[in-house]
Design a protein around this nucleic acid. Structure first.
Lengths: 204, 204
DNA sequence: GTCTATATCCGGATAGAC
DNA sequence: GTCTATCCGGATATAGAC
């Protein structure tokens, strides 16, 4: 079950989804997909979580896969926004603040993040292509941040592309292991990760 | 499709599974589960990959879930063995070599690793408890390696448990992003990761 | 041990009333 | 827009011959 707090947070992300019933359905589907996986989730399950009949799914969505696509697309857009939203002239501070918010996002919005990261394979080829483009932008952004730090002399890395991938990977995997009932808050995870990443990248 | 090379590598892990048909079925299932996920895989699919009839699955396994459990159990045992197999008196060298083999394993045996990491939720409660115990051992081992380094003065970390989790997480997530047709070999990923982790942990 | 055939159930999607 | 009822394809697992 989902606490009211998490629901409210989820709601932020889906705020622009209208009408109301469509949004409730999307949130219900995201929770079900995150809990049990896309293929293990039935449309009856989604409808029940949204408090509606099984047929109600098809009023606002063409198919179960369409529901997944909307969650994945909006989730990727949100994640890209969090990643690129940090403005800071100093490459080191920018990296630290970006890693902190990006890792934090994967904890705080773990439900969405899990669907984003682990259900790509269930998308149709056409829908997959759309989110793949967003994923490329995410990778590119991380790499260019590392690159900037290297150019400024603050970072020294053995393998630019590989190291950037590792930084991204570290943040993303938070969605796998994070538990809301754990000892660390998303905020604390963000701080810790910013510190660890700077240690990984900084010129000795 | 799987190259002969990968098959041979897979075969190593499953070497003690007998009889032959049972092993072929297990390998077929592991590949299918890794490709499409447990719930998206049909028993017909597994049987076809093993070159047998759908009913043949039930000669050696009680159910599809039993097949998953065997893969998960053996995979966890293998992964634990790789992690704990490194002997080295120096905490820093030990950490470096362990991270290198553990990360490498998650690339080289990506097929098994993906089932191990991403299909836990499909196990029955009883079977889940068995692998959860193995997972606890893995976490504990990483933490005690970090701890030793801290005791020796070679490592300095802000949060022992959180940092250990991050090291483990970094290695595990290799199974998600690694592609056999990429530019880096599993060996190279191991080396890079050993370097990155030491930078994360070392006392400045 | 392996096969063919099939029982049985379940899930995505639709029809049509309100 | 939402419901109840239902169609129909497909999936797990079993029966029984060889």
């Amino acid at each position: 079950m989902t606490s009211l707090g998490e629901y409210a947070l989820l709601d932020q992300s889906w705020h622009d989804v209208v009408p109301d019933a469509a949004r409730r359905m999307l949130i219900a589907a995201a929770q079900a997909f995150a809990d049990k996986g896309y293929h293990a989730t039935t449309t009856r399950d989604i409808a029940a979580r949204a408090g509606m009949s099984p047929a109600a799914v098809y009023i606002h969505y063409r198919s179960k896969e369409d529901l997944l696509f909307q969650i994945s697309r909006i989730g990727h857009e949100r994640s890209l926004k969090v990643l690129t939203g940090v403005q800071d002239p100093d490459p080191v501070d920018r990296m630290a603040r970006t890693v902190a918010s990006f890792a934090r996002w994967h904890a705080e919005f773990r439900t969405t993040a899990r669907v984003v990261q682990y259900e790509l394979g269930a998308l149709s080829p056409e829908h997959h292509a759309v989110v793949a483009e967003l994923r490329r932008k995410i990778e590119t952004h991380v790499r260019s941040m590392v690159e900037e730090g290297v150019r400024s002399g603050a970072f020294t890395v053995p393998d630019l592309k590989g190291t950037s991938l590792a930084v991204l990977s570290l943040c993303i995997d938070v969605a796998r292991w994070y538990r809301p009932d754990g000892t660390r808050t998303p905020e604390q995870i963000g701080s810790l990760y910013a510190d660890l990443v700077l240690r990984m990248l900084r010129t000795p």
